[in-house]
Design a protein around this nucleic acid. Structure first.
Length: 470
RNA sequence: GCGCCUCUAGCUCAAUGGCAGAGCAACGGACUCUUAAUCCGCAGGUUGGGGGUUCGAAUCCCCCGGGGCGCACCA
């Protein structure tokens, strides 16, 4: 583009100016020269003077142009809403008390060829907001703040984990066998090897192989991919924190989760008592801990556990409106009954503990009851925030669980796991007692920014393409 | 995948079977302290796409597409 400079030397931002010149009185002028840059959002011409509101990432400040002092004054008054400019001049406060840069020289840094939204109402159309996120971020202050909060949250989390001695690692996104969770994967193809590969549905198995290799505290924050439906709480690619700690069990992670989440609330919101969707959410530790069996018993008014006769569980699930499959054992039936009757009414925060072993193929059996797993899910604001367990370390038991999964897969369960021989071999080298935890970062950001839709916390959420005709 | 709702100017919205409109933005002009400035003027549309009913369709019906919410699946 002709006339567009390659760089602009900025010496101040809007927030910094307001901070520094708070005490300036109306009409007062300084001799301080500054250079600011950003997007012009409003221009008010007043004959031989003009005012423009300049937005930068820190806030906004007024540009004050005068025919006598401003270079190319006529062109300045013709700036359009959305144009990027860099402007230099002295800091002044107008007679009406608005902090301004009295523009002496300025440069157009980019032209807005497309006009921005309504200057008062912004852009509210949900489709436009997510398809043209760049417009949403400029037009709607709140949209940008959510993403800034997300950035701070991830940074705080990372630093906190490093303080605790965890080492950040990166494991493959392309998997030969999608493992570590039960979900449908995306498939892709490697040409040179002529083989299908899967985008990971979880980093779990590789992280535990690193523990086998001697990393006793590891974590990964990264994208995972699940080929499932979209909803206000589901995006096909989302960000997960997974961490593993050797010599620990799932009880250690109860307190870790409480402390991490309430600590983030304190840092980002200044309190552990939040409001989410208009409803009170008290994240102050300790959180309630309750077994799944007890919660289901409480919710249905009738004892239920993995030891309840299968026929009774089937009957009760059917009565609750659930589908019943012949091959389901008591563990799966109890989980379904929990999801039908109990989970929808949980608000939390609450740790739901001791899931059936049948539905926890990577978790270690409960030390007090072999039909249960040492596993919990934190439920916060009515949704699963994560998943944690004492890791299954016995290669023989792991093989049996994989084989049960493989059988379910053959029977038609598309989400069941496959036998991962590489992982079994790693276990045979010895995985020490280890606790593992996964937390959905997007959902955590939703909680702490009071966002109702996961798309609000993802810069570019997955959308069906607009079928542009050619 | 199924159900309900929705799509009108760049943006935010009117018009419920009878001439497609307003505000803001854009464009032209006036104005020496504005704050969504104000004032004057000008332009802007295949009403998401296609078909049907009707003398007449943004409006009613059908098909297709995008989006939202719910269900299902899951974090």
């Amino acid at each position: 583009m002709a006339g567009i400079p390659y760089r602009f030397e900025r010496t101040a931002d809007a927030a910094g100016l307001h901070q520094r010149y708070r005490e300036l009185s109306p009409g007062q002028e300084t001799d301080d020269e500054v250079a600011v840059a950003g997007r012009v959002m409003l221009v008010r011409r007043q004959g031989r003077i003009a005012f423009a509101t300049l937005h930068d990432s820190s806030g906004q400040v007024q540009l004050f142009a005068r025919q006598q002092v401003t270079g190319d004054f006529e062109a300045f008054t013709r700036l359009s809403l959305g144009d990027w400019v860099g402007a230099g001049g002295r800091v002044v406060k107008t007679n009406k008390g608005e902090l301004s840069v009295l523009v002496e020289r300025w440069e157009l840094l980019a032209e807005a060829r497309r006009s921005f939204g309504d200057k008062w109402k912004g852009v509210t159309d949900v489709e436009t907001r997510f398809r043209q996120r760049e417009v949403d971020l400029w037009a709607n202050e709140g949209s940008r703040q959510v993403l800034e909060t997300r950035s701070r949250l991830v940074s705080l989390l990372r630093h906190r984990l490093e303080e605790l001695g965890f080492v950040e690692v990166e494991t493959p996104l392309l998997h030969v066998i999608p493992g570590g969770a039960t979900a449908k994967p995306f498939v892709t193809h490697h040409n040179a090897l002529d083989m299908d590969l899967y985008l990971r549905i979880a980093p779990e198995l590789f992280l535990k192989r690193l523990v086998v290799g001697g990393f006793d505290k590891v974590f990964e924050i990264g994208r995972v991919f699940r080929n499932e439906g979209l909803s206000p709480r589901h995006n096909p690619e989302f960000t997960m924190l997974e961490l593993y700690q050797a010599y620990a069990d799932y009880t250690d992670f109860l307190t870790l989760v409480e402390e991490l989440v309430s600590g983030l609330a304190l840092e980002l919101r200044g309190t552990t008592v939040l409001s989410y969707g208009g409803r009170r959410l008290d994240l102050t530790p300790p959180w309630r801990r309750e077994t799944m069996a007890r919660l289901v018993t409480e919710a249905t008014g009738k004892p239920a556990s993995v030891h309840t006769p299968v026929d009774e569980l089937r009957q009760r699930l059917a009565a609750a409106g659930g589908q019943v499959h012949e091959q389901w054992g008591p563990g799966k039936l109890l989980l379904e009954l929990y999801e039908k009757t109990t989970e929808p009414d949980l608000w939390g925060p609450v740790f739901v503990t001791d899931f059936p072993a049948e539905v926890s193929p990577l978790a270690r059996r409960h030390r007090a009851d072999a039909e249960l797993a040492e596993r919990f899910e934190p439920i916060v604001a009515g949704r699963e925030l994560g998943n944690a367990f004492s890791e299954l370390v016995d290669p023989d038991d792991q093989r049996r669980r994989f084989e049960e999964q493989a059988a379910a897969r053959v029977a038609g369960d598309e989400e069941a796991m496959a036998v991962d021989e590489d992982y079994l071999r790693a276990l045979e080298y010895g995985l020490p007692p280890t606790a593992g935890l996964g937390i959905g970062i997007d959902r955590l950001v939703m909680l702490l920014t009071d966002s109702a839709n996961i798309r609000d916390v993802i810069a570019f959420p997955t959308l069906r393409p607009e079928r542009l005709t050619d």
